[in-house]
Amino acid sequence: MHRIGYFLTDGFQVMALGTQSVFEFANVVAKEQVYQVTNYSLRGGVVTSSIGASVNTQSVTSESRADTWMVSGIVDPIGHVSTAEELDFLKRAAGQAQRVGGMCTGAFVLAQAGLLEGKKVTTHWAYASILKDRFPGTFVEPDSIFINDGAIWTSAGLSAAMDLALGMVEKDLGHGVANRVAKVLVMYHRRSGGQSQHSEMLNIAPKSDRVQVALDYARAHLSDDLSAEVLARTVHLSERQFRRVFLSETGLSPAKAVEQLRLETARNMIQRGQHSLEIIARETGFRDRRHLREVFVRKLGVSPQSLRREAREGDTD
């Protein structure tokens, strides 16, 4: 039996407890008790959530063990600092567990405990840049619903923590069980970790018409050469001027912005399922299907084939 411990502190986000349903229905689908879920806190007893609802917990001791520890954050992590006792427990618990999950801003707690150093992680988009600044040894990927890097699992918002929990079930019990659990829970389908929290291109808000024209040109010509030199010519600037203006207005290099445009467009085409991967690669400016896969795995942590399979299964569920 796989033991899952939820480590709760006062002010925890109550929605975190909803992820327990994923493990509950994994037991139902598997027709055996694969998972045993227990709520813990430092002292035990009643712990109050951010909305005021309370839950009873067991106290943690030197003998407390779990195969998976799930940690919830709080509504606003900016001014919150976990106690030394809480962090000491998490360090010890993580060393004895198979994996640790930081749900939403729970990533901040794991980072304070030193568990995210050198790890690729995500958190709620509103706090991703803050997490990156506070813990520079952590590689924060804001464009992911959840990320699994070794024994560390992190999710974006708490609805994305449902996807994280389903990802754990898939790792433990296989894709078929995870998909049936998603169906029981009336989730559209199990979203992969590589799906975006939102369109990153919405964050690009250029101040000048010239940069906007260049972006519009890029969107309309994804299969063409979109080097900085080409884009500069479309707006009648020198390449050097264009690079400087583009970076100052968007915070991205032209090459990075073009890569994001191609990646988002390809992802949307894959999920719609209307074209082969060869056609998608060609129309979005990737060299070939292999190049498309390489970029997807490197940037999103998931293959195009996996995204397509999940989209198809979601349509038939």
Rank of each mutant, 00 (worst) to 15 (best):
G301P: 04
H175E: 14
N39G: 12
L90R: 04
A266F: 01
V213G: 01
D143L: 15
L87F: 00
V186F: 14
D143K: 15
R65P: 00
Q271M: 15
Q212K: 05
A218C: 04
G73A: 02
R233F: 00
D76F: 09
D88A: 14
Q58S: 08
D288A: 03
T61I: 02
N27L: 05
Q195A: 00
A128V: 04
D315S: 13
E283C: 02
V211C: 00
V47D: 06
T138V: 13
K31L: 14
T154V: 03
R282I: 06
F146W: 14
L42V: 03
L226G: 04
A126Q: 13
L116R: 06
S41E: 09
T9R: 07
W125S: 12
P142W: 14
H2F: 15
G157A: 13
G174Y: 08
I51K: 11
N179C: 11
A311R: 01
H198N: 07
H80Y: 09
H221C: 06
Q36H: 14
P136K: 13
R92P: 08
L222Q: 02
V75D: 15
D67W: 02
V100A: 10
D224C: 11
F286D: 05
H291D: 12
G193T: 03
V46I: 09
L263C: 02
R65M: 14
G102D: 06
